[in-house]
Design a protein around this nucleic acid. Sequence first.
DNA 1: TGTACATCAGTGAACGCGCGTTCACTGATGTAC
DNA 2: TGTACATCAGTGAACGCGCGTTCACTGATGTAC
Lengths: 211, 211
Amino acid sequence: MSGSKRTGGRRGYHHGNLTEALVQAALDLIAKHGPAGFTFAEVTRAVGVSPAAPYRHYKDRDALMADIARRGFEAFAESLSQAWNDGQPDALSAFKTVGQAYLAFARDEPAYFTAMFETRLPKDASRELSQATDDAFAVLRQACEALIAQLPTGKRPPALMMALHVWSMAHGIAALFGRGDSSRRNVPMSPEDLLEANMLIYLDGLGLSQR
Amino acid sequence: MSGSKRTGGRRGYHHGNLTEALVQAALDLIAKHGPAGFTFAEVTRAVGVSPAAPYRHYKDRDALMADIARRGFEAFAESLSQAWNDGQPDALSAFKTVGQAYLAFARDEPAYFTAMFETRLPKDASRELSQATDDAFAVLRQACEALIAQLPTGKRPPALMMALHVWSMAHGIAALFGRGDSSRRNVPMSPEDLLEANMLIYLDGLGLSQR
DNA sequence: TGTACATCAGTGAACGCGCGTTCACTGATGTAC
DNA sequence: TGTACATCAGTGAACGCGCGTTCACTGATGTAC
């Protein structure tokens, strides 16, 4: 996963990094034609490899799809985690940065976003996929807990509920208005501004006034 | 569209209501296999008609898809509108009912929901489709305006922004936790409770305290 | 009411195509000694 | 350093299949007189 990338041009009989190449080609095709917009055969052609080659790496198309979703959630979790940055410089601004990171991911990686949220994978598709999903959610929950800690004991909402709310708000805006592809809906506000205002009103409602 | 339904069993040479039957069969298949989970040929088989038959009604698969999305948005708008019920008995409770209706639609009509929000249709797919989408959004906006009117003049948020927030919150919860199909994520709260709490906190933040 | 005719909606056979998958194979790479 | 061998990753030809689409057709329905 790290350091094994062979950035070479010419290839001989062996490709050297077929797995990565297949994933990349699939992502390109998803970005162009939507969630279901690629075939196994198309991907091999894009990579310039024989149609039988991918079977050394994936059982079938679904296995490739699940791997893509897993990679997406891992990148997503990593991205949110960096944005949170251990709550530095302070919980509230780190929290906002996490929201922006959510939107940035939807905009910059629409193919991953689609693969993660709009493909039906068997629930138990893979242990790693569930793990990666949980990791991403854990960042949101952690950020919520830090904010909750600023409230007086009697006025604290359940962290799980708040985290689900935050996830829904960010996800709703990202899904409806914040995609970096053709399925984006146009409204006269940036998704970033829309989300920031939404979060501020919500936090206000919780008593986390930032005046 | 209304009254022309021929609820008959046996059919002769002519089907009598092929358009409706094709739409229904496609919805069933979408519910089973996801957004892209049906083929034109499969639909004709489900309906029990020759593979050439649909061409009398739809140019191609995309045209059928767009028609389904249009019907979905029309049903959705209708459903939200009934829930709003002209703000009766009072704006706040009618507003909550609209939220529940949003979730109910996602749960009860996952196939429509998928067709409406997760298929890439050319932006200008059809005039009727855009119209139906706008109609659905108009209900949300109307409900927001009624609530805003209860606030003192100086503290009123822009209705458009509030409507977009409400849409996002309802949509985020519906998309992540509220689908009536296999793509639903499990959490220890009902989508309804989750949305109600979210809306209450948000309205509180706006100063619409309901104590 | 009866007949002739036009229109319409569905037929069924046919087609070319690309897909997923298999198979025995082969070139490249790594390793033991 | 050199050689023999095992393992691995990709080949390319082949297959059966279902799909989308076309076409001349035909049975049913509606209408004029």
